[in-house]
Design a protein around this nucleic acid. Sequence first.
DNA 1: ATGATAGCTGACAGGTTGTCATGTGTCAAT
DNA 2: ATTGACACATGACAACCTGTCAGCTATCAT
Lengths: 210, 210
Amino acid sequence: MPSTTFFNLPPEKREKLLSAARAEFARVPYAEASINKMIQAADIPRGSFYMYFRDKKELFLYLMGEYGQRLIALMEKLLERRQGDIFAAFLDLFDRIQAEYRDPEKKERYQHIMGIVRNNSGVQLFSLLGMEDWLPIPGRLVEWVDPRLLDLRSADDLEKIFCILIDVTGQAVLRGIQAEDPAAVRSSYLRMLDILKRGMARKQPETQHE
Amino acid sequence: MPSTTFFNLPPEKREKLLSAARAEFARVPYAEASINKMIQAADIPRGSFYMYFRDKKELFLYLMGEYGQRLIALMEKLLERRQGDIFAAFLDLFDRIQAEYRDPEKKERYQHIMGIVRNNSGVQLFSLLGMEDWLPIPGRLVEWVDPRLLDLRSADDLEKIFCILIDVTGQAVLRGIQAEDPAAVRSSYLRMLDILKRGMARKQPETQHE
DNA sequence: ATGATAGCTGACAGGTTGTCATGTGTCAAT
DNA sequence: ATTGACACATGACAACCTGTCAGCTATCAT
């Protein structure tokens, strides 16, 4: 989405701008994030900025996309590690995001995302991603799911199950990040997963040794 | 949240401001909504605005709250009409909101909400409501649900089921409003409800005539 | 008629954004 | 070496925005 000129930039300069932008988006809600502050911090002239990005929104979406890619990759890894158990993988995802948010060490690179979530009442992230990036995702991730663990009754059941889990997990993450008592949110999320399993997991997997 | 002075205003003047605000929020994304435009349209002096609301955000949240109240009332009505069938009621809710958004006639009063949803990539509405208003809601609405229709295994099952349905329905509404093909979103939502019922609805309601 | 209290107001300082005319650097062809 | 063509860089600028504040007005009890 940024102009090609942006990608022709020396990587160092490019990263400097992105880094300043991340910091600024983490500092205040989207509406208050100032392009001025970003370009001052990155020492980029005003005009140049508009060579690279049409406006604040384009830059923001670019950063969101970055994070979206990362979440997909992470989810692939988690599904693989859990051998296709979709519920376990989603819980892992929830925990990872929560941990990332709490851990002051790990905030380095994706701190801005958490800042966004916090500052905007969790507003931007999941809705924006939800629209533009999530929807095609299940298609890519679905392959890592072990269908034998699920009670699939028609062709698109798996996709729908994925959507439901994304919706519920996404909201749970938001609650967790904003809650005063994250542990309560987690146990609440666990209970929800439990209820979802009742209708989604395959009953009595027959083969005990599995 | 607005100052008491605001409520001492002649109702006509008050409504004029709110109305202008609704229109402005419907016109552009939150970040671009201009207090200037609102007060010009409502013929309110600049200083006065800041007598009533601390800033744009307070006004916005007030309007969101208005809509939230309305949704709760609507949901109560739908649950009653459906005799406590929570799935039917949520589907009704989904359809009502979609219809309201599509119907140019009905846009009058709550059009701004739809504008907000559209303009902000569905960003503000459900997240904000989700945080501040939804959470206490299940407690109020839960009384209208007929527990005999559900497979409740522990004390907070009903509340959790409510939360799941809110999460899933909320996201479905967002998709529906932004989708090019709303019918596809609706049928997708139906399929999700169907899957959810598998784990939530009481099996074999015994009485066939029901 | 006086004072107290509440509410009203518009000019203003300080900030923001997106544009654009003019500048610079590079490279190919003469 | 000169020229033109091209992509890219730049900062001054107009137009807009917000939140404040010193001073204004209306109302009402005494």
